[in-house]
């Protein structure tokens, strides 16, 4: 194969926009809530597709998830990915990021053995359902490949990768030898839409392979719940910010700003709140 083989790892997550509180019981309602591709992973798919479009090669999308995630893989193929792999096994359930990254890394090894050399693995910045941002780094560790995150742009030449990495206050440029792992900056790109012919291909050619642990042959002590050392020890909810519930109907923006400033500074309670927010407890 000419060009580069890029693997994109995606997560099939609950659509958190659809999860809400029951006003009577105060508990989360998850019933009937469908899953979606983790929104930031769409940016990872987009980056991989752009690299393939520029340099040739192929994009393989991979996910570790229960079988309904095929719907997400079809969506990815609809966007233009060449093929997809569903890694699924009952023994993989309940995995934390360590066990997940282990399975993904071994699946990438299997891609290398059975399909061919992998040049780059791409992940989204983090997931909406757990926000750990671990997976890219952990997969890179398992594979022993260099890892760069917050990547905004990437280009490939002569077996090496050049990226632009955007942090809060600086923009950095890196070069790394392939193979490598990158995580794409949140909202870095504009993910392309599903196209008719690609989606048709997803439904007819069905370029989606399923691998279970029979195919991967991983030690069951290293996967799923058993392979997950992470323990959520305690969850504390942040205290609600008190609101004064004042409403002002302004005549124009200038007047609105003036009113706001006047109120913010004249009210003692508000002044304390601002001071605490800016300089911490006890600064008022």
């Amino acid at each position: 194969m000419a060009g580069y083989r890029v693997v994109v790892g995606i997560k099939w997550v609950p659509n958190t926009q659809a999860v809400r509180f029951d006003p009577k019981t105060g508990t989360l309602i998850r019933q009937g809530v469908p899953a979606i591709i983790n929104p930031q992973d769409l940016h990872a798919i987009e980056m991989a597709l752009r690299l393939r479009d520029a340099y040739g090669g192929e994009v393989i999308v991979i996910t570790m998830a229960p079988p309904p995630a095929v719907q997400g893989l079809e969506h990815a193929i609809g966007m233009g990915a060449d093929r997809a792999i569903l890694v699924t096994d009952r023994s993989f359930a309940g995995a934390d990021t360590l066990a997940t990254s282990y399975v993904l890394a071994r699946a990438i090894n299997k891609v290398e053995r059975e399909i061919g050399r992998v040049d780059l693995a791409v992940f989204g910045q983090e997931t909406i359902d757990s926000s750990t941002a671990h997976i890219g780094a952990q997969v890179a560790s398992w594979l022993g490949w260099p890892y760069i995150y917050y990547v905004k742009q990437a280009s490939l030449s002569n077996g090496s990768l050049r990226v632009v990495r955007q942090l809060e206050d600086v923009i950095e440029e890196y070069e790394a030898k392939l193979p490598a792992v990158i995580s794409v900056l949140a909202k870095a790109l504009r993910p392309r839409h599903v196209s008719l012919l690609n989606k048709l291909r997803a439904r007819t050619e069905r370029p989606i392979i399923t691998w279970t642990n029979k195919d991967l042959g991983l030690d069951t002590r290293c996967v799923g719940l058993k392979g997950s050392p992470t323990i959520v020890a305690k969850v504390t909810y942040l205290p609600e910010v008190p609101r004064l519930k004042k409403v002002h109907k302004a005549e124009n923006p200038r007047e609105a700003a003036r009113w706001l400033l006047k109120n913010l500074l004249s009210d003692e309670k508000t002044r304390d709140l601002i001071a605490r927010a800016l300089w911490g407890e006890g600064s008022a």
Partner: peptide
């Protein structure tokens, strides 16, 4: 009084649906 005995604002009604909002309008 339960929140269900007062009219909901439109945001509260819409929030009950499943959404996957595009980043582009």
């Amino acid at each position: 009084m339960s929140t269900l005995e007062k009219p909901f604002k439109i945001e509260d009604l819409l929030q009950r649906n499943i959404w996957d909002v595009d980043e582009e309008p």
